[in-house]
Design a protein around this nucleic acid. Structure first.
Length: 543
RNA sequence: GUCUAUAUAGCUCAGUGGAUAGAGCAAUUGUCUCCGAAACAAUAGGUCAUAGGUUCGACUCCUAUUAUAGACGCCA
């Protein structure tokens, strides 16, 4: 049990003694300045409205009723406008130390989710070309979110939606067919909106090598099928290299084949959300807060893309997931309201779906913006970046950004300064821990997890921060915010480096202290390793 | 015009109602006879875009304005 939680519980007891029934939104946290205690709470200020007294006098009452022995508190002070600051006994860390060492690889794992089922859909790039850096962000973000949710006890499925029924795929098959003909020296015009990428030319040449001209008589549907297979396999391979593995690939074509798409309009009609206008069929999404109604069936009789998407989300919910998460680029933000509308219209709860939007990636190369262009086939891909700076640094780079903020990547700078990536600072701390532990092992001394000799402020700061890890994991998971993990790890590495420089860990003259300090290195190593694993980065033992 | 984000140190970014707003890079200065100097310690650098409001307290919440990116089709 961690110390902050203990203090919080005791404060809840105090509230009961004061006969306060209502929820008080107070926090127990580590103050920035440790002269303000090891932990502090704002409970007195929060109570001003309820008790209608000044915060310092409330603080006095709280302190009087507070049972210090229940949570290893040595001293309590009231400071500033009414903060209550707690100073804990050094022995209070013994249970934390033992917990971290015993849990080891499992430190951080929690049962908060109680096995509830999440389906997280991300990347879902059309199989028409290589993954670009926007997909890299989605892949890193999505996979890390899945890891976090799993860590706190949810049952998570990673899902990829393959848009294989739309016009994009038709263009792909036409492009392949044209390139194939060109490979055979047949003079044909390349389709107007075709895919110009070099990969298609390469694929066409492979077809020529393998089959000669025997495919010329095949229908377009044949090229469609082999095209999807070829492109999707390439994507899967890249994702695998990026350490992202999907559990389920759902194909749009399958939704049509199973008749799921055709079921939607009658279903919505039954509930009264469908009407006809100008020869088209509309879904009344404004009933659920959208700013305008959406067409689901065009006047020419074909469906809009929206309809299969509704069918797809219904299909996911029917498979028994409690929550759905979609990760999309900012160019899809208009999509949120209408999809929520669809979910609600179908009788599900709005908070069963969450759509996470990440902002656009702006690429700078040679001092100017590099526009992604499928037409010209020129793009800087996920694989390009991984080849240049490595998978670890790439995963870290994308996991560490808040998806709500805009990202600018200067490729030349990223490559040149890859060692300045904050990840290396964290890796260095980990490698240092490993090195210390190795040296220590040769001494043949038994670990001491009591923590009784740890009194230096650097040691205490490190312990307190490690004690926060589980809360940070939970917070990051619930907010679906992997960047909270990277921020945490960075601070942890910093505290460790600082501790290392001030406190000699291995001291042959003082075996007792060595046996306790080395445990700090072990705790740090465990925490960094587990934290990095959540964002798909390997912890290095040597650099 | 409407919608969604974003605006914090010269640059890249933390900071989801609390105490003196924090890191890294860049600048200046110390620290390796010693467990890994890819590190540490220190100095300097900010009217938290602007103006109002909410309250014990606002970088944080609300409103308006400005700037930047993106979205607003019977396209996907």
């Amino acid at each position: 049990m961690n110390i902050a939680t203990n203090i919080k519980q005791e404060l809840e007891n105090v509230l009961k003694k004061l006969n306060i029934e209502v929820q008080v939104p107070f926090v127990v946290e580590i103050p920035k300045d440790n002269t303000n205690g090891d932990y502090a709470t704002n409970i007195a200020m929060q109570l001003t409205k309820i008790l209608k007294q000044n915060p310092r006098s409330i603080a006095n009452q709280v302190v009087e009723l507070f049972n210090k022995d229940a949570c290893n508190v040595e001293k309590i002070e009231i400071a500033g406008p009414g903060f209550i600051n707690f100073f804990v006994k050094s022995t209070s860390f013994a249970s934390l130390i033992k917990h971290v060492i015993d849990a080891n690889d499992n430190f951080g794992k929690q049962d908060y989710g109680k096995g509830k089922k999440y389906d997280v859909e991300f990347v879902s790039a059309n199989p028409t070309g290589d993954l670009h850096l926007g997909h890299a962000w989605q892949a890193a973000l999505g996979d890390s979110i899945c890891n976090l949710l799993t860590e706190v006890g949810y049952n998570v499925t990673r899902e990829y939606y393959v848009n294989d029924a739309g016009v994009q795929i038709l263009k792909l098959s036409q492009s392949i067919y044209a390139r194939y003909q060109q490979a055979l020296n047949i003079d044909v015009a390349f389709p107007e909106d075709g895919y110009h990428g070099p990969d298609i030319i390469k694929f066409a040449n492979e077809l020529k090598e393998k089959y000669g001209d025997t495919l010329l008589t095949k229908p377009l549907s044949y090229f469609k099928q082999i095209g999807i297979e070829y492109e999707l396999n390439k994507i899967i391979k890249d994702l695998d290299m990026f350490r992202v593995k999907f559990d389920v690939f759902s194909h749009e074509v399958m939704l049509y084949e199973k008749g799921l798409v055709d079921e939607i309009i009658p279903l919505l009609k039954e509930k009264g959300y469908i009407y006809k206008q100008d020869g088209a069929i509309w879904f009344k999404t404004t009933a659920f807060g959208d700013d305008k109604d959406r067409v689901v069936k065009k006047s020419d009789g074909t469906y809009t893309y929206f309809l299969p998407d509704i069918a797809y989300h219904r299909y996911k919910l029917q498979r028994g997931f409690d929550y759905l998460v979609d990760i999309l680029g900012a160019d899809h933000h208009g999509y949120i309201k209408r999809m929520e509308a669809a979910i609600m219209a179908l009788g599900y709860n709005k908070d069963q779906i969450q759509i996470i939007i990440h902002q656009m990636v702006k690429l700078i190369k040679d001092g100017e913006e590099l526009k992604l262009s499928k037409r010209t086939g020129k793009a800087y891909t996920l694989k390009d970046l991984c080849d240049e700076i490595g998978v670890n640094a790439t995963r870290y780079q994308f996991a560490s950004k808040n998806p709500g903020s805009h990202m600018e990547i200067d490729i030349d700078l990223a490559v040149k300064q890859s060692n300045d990536n904050p990840m290396y600072y964290i890796e260095y701390a980990h490698a240092r821990c490993c090195s210390i532990i190795k040296t220590y092992d040769e001494l043949n001394v038994k670990d001491d997890t009591s923590g009784s000799l740890l009194s230096n402020s650097k040691e205490i700061d490190l312990l307190k921060h490690i004690g926060e890890y589980e809360n940070v994991v939970l917070d990051a998971a619930l907010n679906k915010a992997p960047f909270k993990i990277t921020n945490y790890l960075y601070t942890l590495a910093s505290l460790f480096h600082s501790f290392y420089n001030e406190c000699k860990v291995i001291d042959k003259e003082n075996v007792e202290l060595t046996a306790q300090r080395v445990v700090l290195a072990k705790m740090t190593r465990i925490t960094i390793k587990n934290g990095l694993k959540l964002i798909g980065v390997e912890a290095l033992e040597k650099m």
